[in-house]
Computed example of a mutant assay.
Amino acid sequence: MLRQTLLLLHLLGVIAWLGGMFFAYFCLRPAAAQVLQPPQRLPLWSATFARFLPLMAVAVVVIIASGLHMLFSVGLGAAPIGWHVMFGVGSVMAVVFGAVYLRVFPQLKAHCAASSWPEAGAALNRIRQLVALNLVLGAVVVAAAVSAR
């Protein structure tokens, strides 16, 4: 029962994180660029990230904790190679998330508060690049999960 609960929590965290990044990158970003000018668009992103990133911080902790518990419960040597790939690539994703949340997002927030639109735009572009990286890495993690036996 514990394993199923951990797997459920793990999958819910992954769905929220990857789904949120996918929605933001492929839906919200183009729509906001289409209908809003930077002085409106950049505060929208700042407010969106202010809500999204703390929730994803919880999801990332749950993903890592549940994944490590499941990995160590079977033993590193007995775990499928896909699990090791998930752990390695997922760890890189967590570091990228940390850079967005702890470094780049505060810059975006500060530049928006100061109405420094070019600097805020640069920070948002950096977040966009890091989210794109995490989406690619996330696809690798999903492929590893599917291939794990």
Rank of each mutant, 00 (worst) to 15 (best):
M56V: 12
V60F: 02
S66Q: 00
V60Q: 00
A78Q: 15
P80R: 01
V62D: 04
G90M: 00
A78D: 13
S66K: 01
I81C: 10
F72K: 04
F87M: 15
V96N: 13
V95W: 11
L55R: 13
I64K: 06
M93L: 07
H69E: 09
H69P: 02
V61E: 07
I81F: 15
W83E: 10
M86S: 09
S73T: 14
H84I: 10
I64R: 00
G88D: 07
V62F: 02
V89M: 04
G67W: 06
S66W: 15
A65I: 05
I81G: 03
L55F: 09
A59C: 15
V60K: 00
A65M: 12
V61C: 06
A78V: 08
H84C: 06
S91L: 12
A79D: 09
I64H: 10
H69R: 07
V61L: 08
G90N: 00
F72L: 13
H84A: 10
F72A: 11
A59G: 01
V61Q: 11
F72G: 01
A65N: 04
G67F: 03
V95L: 14
V58G: 09
S66C: 09
A57T: 07
V89N: 09
A94E: 02
F87Y: 05
F87L: 14
W83K: 09
L71N: 04
A78Y: 03
V85G: 06
W83G: 10
M56D: 09
L55T: 02
M56Y: 01
A59L: 04
G77N: 14
G90E: 00
A59M: 13
V89F: 07
G88Q: 09
V62Y: 04
G75A: 14
G67M: 00
H69W: 14
W83H: 13
I63L: 11
V85M: 01
M70G: 05
L71E: 01
V74T: 10
G77I: 04
V74Y: 14
G75T: 10
M86V: 03
G75C: 08
G88S: 10
V95K: 00
A78N: 10
M70S: 06
V74C: 05
A59I: 05
I64C: 08
G77H: 11
M86L: 13
L68R: 02
V61M: 13
F87T: 12
G90F: 03
A59W: 04
V74Q: 13
G90S: 11
L76T: 12
G67I: 04
S73D: 14
P80M: 08
